Simulated scan of single mutants.
Amino acid sequence: MDVIDMHNHFIAPAVIEFLAREGNHFATKIVERDGRRFFLIREKAMRPIDGPISNAQARIADMDREEVAAQAVSCVPFLMYPDVDTALGLTIAQVNNDAMVALGASDPDHFVPLASVPMQNPAAAARELERAAKLGLRGVEIPPKVVERQLDEPDFEVFWDAAEALRMVVCIHPFEAAPAGALSRYFLGNLVGNLYDTGLAAALLIYGGVLERHPNLRVVLYHAGGALPALVGRLDMGYRLVPECRSAIPRPPSSYANQFYFDIIAHSRGMLGHLVKTYGADRFVVGTDYPLPAGLAHPVEEVKALGLEPGDEDKILGATARRLLRL
Rank of each mutant, 00 (worst) to 15 (best):
R37F: 00
V73P: 03
D5L: 08
Q120K: 09
G295R: 02
P13T: 15
G51Q: 01
P253F: 03
G189S: 10
L317G: 00
E67L: 15
S106A: 14
D263H: 04
P82A: 04
Y81N: 02
L317F: 04
L88K: 06
D64A: 14
P215Q: 09
G280K: 04
I172S: 01
R36N: 12
Y186L: 12
A20N: 13
R185M: 12
P174M: 09
I92P: 05
P243A: 10
Y196S: 08
V68F: 00
F78A: 03
E32R: 12
F175V: 01
C75T: 13
L241T: 14
F159Y: 05
P299W: 01
M80P: 00
R234Y: 14
R167Q: 15
R127G: 13
K134W: 03
G199S: 12
E128C: 07
R218L: 14
G225Y: 02
P118N: 05
I206T: 03
A165R: 14
A125G: 12
V95R: 00
I41G: 05
A12M: 11
F111H: 03
R326N: 14
L137C: 09
A124H: 09
R322H: 09
L228Q: 01
L308K: 07
R218W: 03
D98Y: 13
V95P: 02
D85W: 10
E32A: 07
E212G: 11
D64H: 00
C171N: 14
M100A: 12
V31H: 06
D161H: 14
Y261W: 11
I265C: 07
S255D: 11
V170N: 08
F260R: 02
G238K: 03
A126L: 02
F284T: 06
S54E: 08
G51N: 01
Q259D: 07
E313V: 10
R33M: 10
C171E: 10
F159I: 11
Y256D: 02
R234S: 08
E17M: 06
T28S: 06
N194Y: 09
P291E: 05
H267S: 04
A224W: 00
I4P: 01
D282K: 07
V192T: 09
A125N: 07
D107L: 11
P113D: 02
T278C: 13
